[in-house]
Nucleic acid binder design. Sequence first.
DNA 1: TTCTGAGGTCATTACGTAGC
DNA 2: GCTACGTAATGACCTCAGAA
Length: 429
Amino acid sequence: MERLDAVAAIYRVATLIADWFPPMRMKWYRAADLDASITLGDGRSIGIIRQGQMSDRSPFAKRLGRLRHGMMPGGLIVLTQDEIRRRHTRRMMYTERVPTFVGIESETIFAGPDDRIWQMPSGNAKIDMAAVLRQISRFGSLPAEAPLMKVYPPIHLNTDLSLDRISPRHLPAAFHPADKRALDLIGDWPGIKYINLRRLMGVSPSRLSQVMGRLKAAKAVQQLHLDGRRIALSNAGVGLLARRDRSSVGAARQRWSVMPVDPALPYDWENISGSRARQLLRNSEHTDAVHRFLADTVERARDEGWEIVQLDPPQRASRYFSYQGAVRAINPDAFVMMRRGREVKAFFLEWERRAIRPSTMRERLAPYIRYYSTDRPRDDHGFTPEVLIVVEDEVTAANFRQLVKQIRSSQPQLPIDIAVPLGSFRLRC
DNA sequence: TTCTGAGGTCATTACGTAGC
DNA sequence: GCTACGTAATGACCTCAGAA
């Protein structure tokens, strides 16, 4: 039940296959690296693996690596959450010995069997499910799991009960779509203020209050009093999302728990147990500024007819790349991608709180200079996203622009823009 | 420096409506 | 009938100026 949403997405893949190739047999895995497998009527087998929102890059890569060294089905279907992670996954699977097809979960849910939504690691062509099934090998075997020691028959779940009376493991069946959307946003942006969460969701204060009431009753979120009222996932909420995505609950809580280390001490950032949550709430002014800017951007984008395709928090916005033999990274405050018809706009967000020295500005820009001197921006996204540096005053903005001008003399294509909030930044196409 | 009260902002509640 | 979401009213909380 805790993996209900993941199960729904994988069942959707199964229905696409069944449209072309009935009958078939489906098997779920509890602990194997595959999430599920499908055996077609002619004996060929397909493994399905899903990368969830909470799945970290490294553990997911290790999971795929373990798969290679074990029993392999005749083909693999990998579901990712967005286009960028699809590209990463395709790169990882480039040398895979069985036919592999990578799709985006949201596209899969709304697709029909004729829709071309699947991509192989090599080549950019998208193919439909019939073409996927034609390439599944006859040679392949599926991993086996020991049968359950004890089988629990399905129980009747009364979703009319108030959420505080529903067992935590059954909550995914009782939550409404708006509850899940809020839960994902709060998970992405821990310590977000109500007003910014409301603006990101695009709902009225009253609607947000209703949703928060449900999530609080389910004990999935927790209200924090740190520089005003904020909201974050409770330990139970972190566990819910981690179990849904088959990632480590313990590791997720070590990073994101907002529970106090010592309940006897006053609640402040130093007393927060999760390492990443502590870091974010220590710099609450910076965190709020980023949230506020993103809420402004999302609202303005909606008004101008843009669809927000991706809104990644720092933990998903970072990009790792190889530069002169060493692994380097950019670690922006957010990554935003929006679409309007055929137009696409995307940018990494860097928020600078205060005036900084020219040498510090150069240090801030250095990772981006390295990143954009490689082919990785285009490889990662399929196009070249911008870097948007937001500073709080025009003097700092002018200094930054001067520095960027100097850098462009040797690297003319560096796509960096400097903005002052609510001032010069406009959605350009 | 501390307290108080006015005014503003934001969250919550009750109830209603639209769409499926 | 259910879900999603809006409006209006209300209450809680925050900020800030002015008085003690």
